[in-house]
Amino acid sequence: MIKEIFEAISVLAIPLIILGFVAFATKKKVPVYESFVTGAKGGFEVAVKIIPYLVAMLVAIGIFRASGAMDLLVKGLSPLAHLIGMPPQVLPMAILRPLSGSGSMGLMTDIMKRYGTDSFIGVLVSTMYGSSETTFYVLAVYFGAVNIYKTRHAVAAGLIADVVGMLGALLICKILFH
């Protein structure tokens, strides 16, 4: 039941938002077509603006992933994971999640294929995936759109949030499913 409700929400949300905005604008006698086009003009500019920032970020992450440095990092961090009771199979997920959206999605699929979707590891890895966003991608795109390169405490705060998210996922899964 809950599942159906959620599915309905995620399918209906966008049409309803669009309908709501257009209907309200019509009621307020806004020239709808004109107003929409004026706003939409900015789309190209914003998208093009983020290209250099995204190239810089994705290439650095690409080099890191292709070099095999990930495996070294996983090896280096595994004693720490063992200490907090994190299964070693999901450690790569914790590291990759903030770096790469498509990469962590592939990793999640891979781990669930290997250990089963409904096993403790399967539930944990998908919870970890859902407990955070791709921090560095968001950072590059959002700051890129407004040409910001002095990011101040954004990286530190974002990484703190990521670590807490991963630990929170581990904690709740241990309480509920272990």
Binding site: I17, I18, F21, V22, F24, A25, K27, K28, V30, V32, S35, F36, V37, T38, G39, A40, K41, G42, G43, F44, V46, A47, V48, I50, I51, L54, V55, M57, L58, V59
Partner: peptide, 25 residues
């Protein structure tokens, strides 16, 4: 990076248009 950015142009324009409607109204 370029593919992602270019793919964003359309949706970006669409939502900016909708947001403009929301602002004007």
């Amino acid at each position: 990076a370029v593919t992602i950015s270019l793919a964003l142009i359309g949706v970006m324009a669409f939502w900016l248009g909708i947001m403009k409607l929301g602002e004007d109204s």
